[in-house]
Amino acid sequence: RTAFSSEQLARLKREFNENRYLTERRRQQLSSELGLNEAQIKIWFQNKRA
Rank of each mutant, 00 (worst) to 15 (best):
R1K: 14
R1H: 13
R1D: 15
R1Q: 14
R1Y: 09
T2Y: 10
T2H: 13
T2F: 12
T2V: 12
T2N: 12
T2C: 15
T2M: 13
T2I: 12
T2P: 14
T2D: 13
A3P: 13
A3E: 14
A3F: 11
F4H: 03
F4P: 05
F4K: 03
F4Y: 07
S5R: 04
S5C: 04
S5P: 03
S5M: 03
S5H: 04
S5Y: 02
S6F: 10
S6K: 14
S6V: 11
S6L: 09
S6Y: 10
S6W: 08
S6A: 14
S6I: 09
E7C: 08
E7H: 07
Q8L: 04
Q8F: 02
Q8D: 06
Q8T: 06
L9T: 06
L9K: 06
L9V: 08
L9H: 05
L9D: 05
L9I: 12
L9R: 05
L9Y: 05
L9Q: 06
L9E: 13
A10M: 07
A10G: 06
A10I: 08
A10T: 08
A10C: 09
A10V: 07
A10Q: 10
R11M: 06
R11Q: 07
R11V: 12
R11N: 04
R11L: 06
L12H: 00
L12G: 00
L12S: 00
L12K: 00
L12W: 01
L12R: 00
L12N: 00
L12T: 00
K13T: 15
K13L: 15
K13A: 14
K13M: 15
K13R: 12
K13C: 15
K13F: 12
K13Q: 15
K13H: 15
K13I: 15
R14Y: 10
R14E: 13
R14M: 12
R14V: 11
R14F: 09
R14S: 10
E15M: 04
F16D: 01
F16V: 02
F16K: 01
F16W: 10
F16R: 02
F16G: 01
N17Q: 12
N17L: 09
N17M: 11
N17E: 14
N17S: 11
N17D: 12
E18C: 11
E18V: 07
E18L: 09
N19G: 05
N19L: 04
N19Y: 05
N19F: 05
N19T: 05
R20F: 05
R20T: 06
R20S: 13
R20C: 12
R20Q: 13
R20I: 09
R20Y: 06
R20M: 10
R20D: 07
R20E: 10
Y21C: 07
Y21G: 04
Y21V: 11
Y21H: 10
Y21Q: 07
L22W: 03
L22Y: 01
L22G: 02
L22M: 06
L22C: 05
L22S: 02
L22K: 01
L22I: 09
L22R: 01
T23I: 02
T23S: 13
T23N: 08
T23F: 02
T23P: 07
E24V: 14
E24L: 08
E24N: 11
E24P: 14
E24D: 13
E24Y: 07
E24G: 09
E24F: 07
E24W: 06
R25A: 14
R25C: 09
R25I: 12
R25H: 12
R25S: 13
R25N: 13
R25G: 11
R25T: 14
R25D: 13
R26W: 03
R26D: 05
R26F: 04
R26A: 07
R26N: 05
R26M: 08
R26K: 11
R26E: 06
R27T: 15
R27L: 15
R27I: 15
R27Y: 11
R27S: 15
R27C: 15
R27F: 11
R27N: 09
R27K: 11
R27A: 15
Q28F: 07
Q28W: 06
Q28G: 06
Q28H: 09
Q29W: 08
Q29F: 07
Q29T: 09
Q29Y: 07
Q29P: 00
Q29G: 04
Q29K: 09
L30P: 00
L30Q: 01
L30A: 00
L30V: 02
L30N: 00
S31K: 03
S31N: 01
S31G: 06
S31I: 05
S31C: 09
S32I: 14
S32T: 12
S32H: 13
S32Y: 12
S32K: 14
S32V: 15
S32D: 12
E33V: 05
E33Y: 03
L34S: 03
L34G: 00
L34A: 02
L34M: 07
G35N: 08
G35S: 06
G35L: 05
G35R: 05
G35I: 02
G35T: 03
G35A: 06
G35M: 06
L36I: 10
L36G: 00
L36C: 05
L36M: 06
L36D: 00
L36W: 02
N37C: 08
N37S: 15
N37I: 06
N37M: 08
N37K: 08
N37A: 13
N37W: 05
E38K: 04
E38T: 06
E38V: 09
E38A: 08
E38I: 08
E38F: 04
E38L: 05
A39R: 10
A39H: 12
A39I: 14
A39E: 15
A39P: 03
A39L: 13
A39K: 11
A39M: 14
A39W: 15
A39Q: 13
Q40W: 11
Q40R: 06
Q40V: 15
Q40S: 11
Q40A: 14
Q40F: 11
Q40T: 12
Q40M: 12
I41D: 01
I41T: 02
I41S: 01
I41Q: 00
I41F: 01
I41C: 03
I41V: 08
K42F: 12
K42A: 15
K42L: 14
K42G: 12
K42W: 13
K42E: 15
I43F: 09
I43N: 12
I43G: 09
I43A: 12
I43L: 13
I43S: 10
I43Q: 13
I43C: 13
I43T: 10
W44A: 02
W44V: 02
W44Y: 09
F45C: 02
F45S: 00
F45A: 00
F45N: 00
F45T: 00
Q46A: 11
Q46G: 06
Q46S: 09
Q46D: 14
Q46W: 09
Q46F: 09
N47H: 11
N47Y: 12
N47S: 10
N47T: 10
N47V: 11
N47A: 11
N47L: 13
K48I: 08
K48V: 08
K48A: 15
K48W: 10
K48R: 13
R49H: 08
R49L: 14
R49Y: 07
R49G: 07
R49V: 10
R49A: 12
A50R: 14
A50L: 10
A50G: 07
A50D: 09
A50Q: 11
A50V: 09
A50K: 14
A50M: 12
